[in-house]
Design a protein around this nucleic acid. Sequence first.
DNA 1: GACGTCATTGTGAGCGCTAACAATTCATGG
DNA 2: CCATGAATTGTTAGCGCTCACAATGACGTC
Lengths: 348, 348
Amino acid sequence: MSPAQLRPPTMADVARQAGVSHQTVSRVLGDHPNVREETRARVLRVIEEMGYRRNSSARALATRRTRTLGVVASDTTLYGPASTLFALEEAARAEGYLVSTVSLRELTMATLSEALDHLSEGGVEGVVAIAPQRSAVDALAELRSPFPVVVVGSGQGVDIPSVSVDQRLGATLATRHLLAAGHRRVWHLAGPEDWLEAADRAAGWRATLEAADVEPPLLLRGDWSPLSGYRAGQELAGWVGRGLTAVFVANDQMALGVLRALREAGVRTPQDVAVVGFDDIPESEFFAPPLTTVRQDFSAVGKQGIALLLEMIEGRSPATPSPIAIEPQLVVRASTFPHAAQPEGVPL
Amino acid sequence: MSPAQLRPPTMADVARQAGVSHQTVSRVLGDHPNVREETRARVLRVIEEMGYRRNSSARALATRRTRTLGVVASDTTLYGPASTLFALEEAARAEGYLVSTVSLRELTMATLSEALDHLSEGGVEGVVAIAPQRSAVDALAELRSPFPVVVVGSGQGVDIPSVSVDQRLGATLATRHLLAAGHRRVWHLAGPEDWLEAADRAAGWRATLEAADVEPPLLLRGDWSPLSGYRAGQELAGWVGRGLTAVFVANDQMALGVLRALREAGVRTPQDVAVVGFDDIPESEFFAPPLTTVRQDFSAVGKQGIALLLEMIEGRSPATPSPIAIEPQLVVRASTFPHAAQPEGVPL
DNA sequence: GACGTCATTGTGAGCGCTAACAATTCATGG
DNA sequence: CCATGAATTGTTAGCGCTCACAATGACGTC
């Protein structure tokens, strides 16, 4: 180790020490061919000795590439966004990109615009927005940014490049599962109206019922929270005995509230009322009873989102046309069949 | 708007258009005094017209400041890390810094070293590591990095600058609460041995019992998951009637598993066995029964973490000496008192 | 009316790197 | 022994910005 210096060493310092030109150092670092093996080794040794690291700003300035992507998200403590965020970062890192995140409390025109500005100041080459509300997508469509933007988790039918799990299909799987189990009608506790995924799930539910010649019953709405599920559950409990035997709840957290409300009302799950959720959060398996739900592959969403964004940045033509849809998967547990699925690994 | 151009406009372009020198443009952007109001307005108008944005790389190169911080985390889908991550980003943004994240599947010497390298390539000025395991903190202590590193969520007693919730205090609150309710002994389901927070919680529990002249009973271990809680719960159920009336579980997710196991074994909570968790995840309020638990202020951890890191980067002397401890808070619900705390906003 | 003072603006030199091109070295064959 | 071309290395010019300093002009003062 050379003595501690005020300024970190530069490429020129390394070059001088190794007795070559700075360009040769650059070649070694850039893995260029046409560098003599002996020279390369000497340079690498000096780099090691001096603890030299390339200055990323200078590099970015010269190459006009920052190799940084931005992600805008909200509700990052929820399972879905958190999983997507994780997958996005992992996929980007695999491609050698750094990810800068902005987590917002709410996605409005103002906060989104500020977030894009902030990321732009940071020099990102593109942005993935985890934007599940219609208002957010609309704002994004209106906002002009100097870099490409991909939306993720917005459901289908938006005219920005996007990647999402096929929510309608998920709702269809859930609803069909209940119909196949012999339930005459399936009720639905939907998510907030503004959420595209909520709309898609409700649409899938409605379409499936109609395809089976069933009149869709009253649709309830919650705000994704267990509390709103609890309240809806209390209302649903009032319909037991009057044709209510099955509920498809738009997410697992609300389903948790529904389960509690039903339990408190003396309604048994699944004997009296079967319940299906959506998301498959890690806790679902341990609800009382364990919850049948629809699993979303957030990891796939992240990978595809980054792939799409990089295609746009590098000007390649996309491998898959946007919007890209990921298939969800039904996970059957005891909330729909009394004796189905114990927790994995637990002896019966 | 000027016609679309291949290269984004530079400061020189703006200067030419506005009939000033590039330096004056820089002054306007930097909010320097001593720019005539009229000139400032003209420059700003041209900037607006041309859609000019400062090039962050050039700026960083000239100022030797990237204004970017790094965060290394793992298990970012768990409530604690996710909340901390959110708070860190928000606090950093408030200070005008961009945050680049690396989410790891596991924190080993190798992955941590790689993560710091990756962030270093990205030019971060400092890093906050969310490192709750002893092994991770040890690795971090050994790893040399060219920028300051702050550890968060590691509990007390590490010799790296750190910020954490006072886990021992939390455990003390939980244990005292159960003792105060008349329980003779309090059992403990701890987290993984390698986790500093788990160790601190167990230590707090043990110390509180000993201070009350109670012999600490057998300590069980889980891995934070509901499943491990479920298994431990089955074991605990076997001790009911043989002196087991209260359990302090090291996190809410395991508590969920414990509750289920007890319920399945015909043990009533809280009449037969009282249960306290740790974390206060949003779902806890809706468990069966709602869970008494210890709330951690992750937001405060994030704020203090960023504050500490910035002090180190800017070479100021810290306002609060590290390690910084944040006070946790007991939240009493029905799992310890049969009639306590209904969900907020739910009429009784 | 020359001079100091202040506000305002401009000039030149880097920051540390890569890209393009120029120069050198070296082996090879006629 | 020198031409030839490939391999290797060096030189020069930016990338777009900020900093330090120089220059300009307006204004009041003695």
